[in-house]
Amino acid sequence: MTTTHEHTPHHLGERSAMLKVTGLQKIYNGGATAVEAVRDLTFELAEGELVCLVGPSGCGKTTLLKCIAGLMAPTDGTVELAGQPVLSPPPGMAVVFQEYGRSLFAWMSVSDNVELPLKEKKLPKARRAELVAESLAAVGLTEFADAYPWQLSGGMQQRVAIARAVAYEPQVLLMDEPFAAVDAQTRADLEDLVRELWKRLGVTVLFVTHDIDEAVYLGERVLVLSNSPTVVQDDITVDLPAERDQLTTRQDERFTQLRAHVYAQIQQAKKGTTAPAA
């Protein structure tokens, strides 16, 4: 990818709020019983930030993500993307789901999968070809452009999904536990790929994960969610150097401290004892 992220008209300052979630609440009404999955979530992502969201399993991460993506209407509260309320999937947002095998169109080649959203954006053909080629090159899949997704391994399929998101040129990239279903080594490669793409494109990334190490390694900030009904339990700034490396970063003393901190927060979240500390 050679294109750097163009600043949008909504750009107000060096780090203005790109994604703003205010008082988000979601209650599922299942007949007689109502389940409050998300209680009161408020947080912001500055433009160009990479924020990781961790929480105990079953804490409503997926619900939250669906509300942010505009796939689900919250019961209360608002989501704003670059100052605009999100009511349906906004054009400036791309999502990478955990289930790579199910989020790719099995009847289309890799390049068609990447190109399809661009067609819907009504981009001219030449521009589409350019974006497809660039994004596939960025994830290292140029030679598999004509393959079908199911001909590739799991990690490669997830890279196709990432290429598709990147080619879409979103303002915000949402990633919903994208590496939960790939093996450990592939996972490490993909984490570095995300860091690299993020730095190069300047895109705002919200990365949901249940893996504490992953959250600390990837993020500039880590948001810890509480148990369901969910609130923000803690907001931790990751003061690690921008250049991160699977080996050295993970051995860094500061990394270990942060990791321990997040871990403690999550243990507390599971018990559901502490009040929100953000």
Partner: peptide
Amino acid sequence: VLSDTARCYGITGTT
């Protein structure tokens, strides 16, 4: 999941 993916990328209507 595929249906959600399509919605996210603005694939609607006859497409």
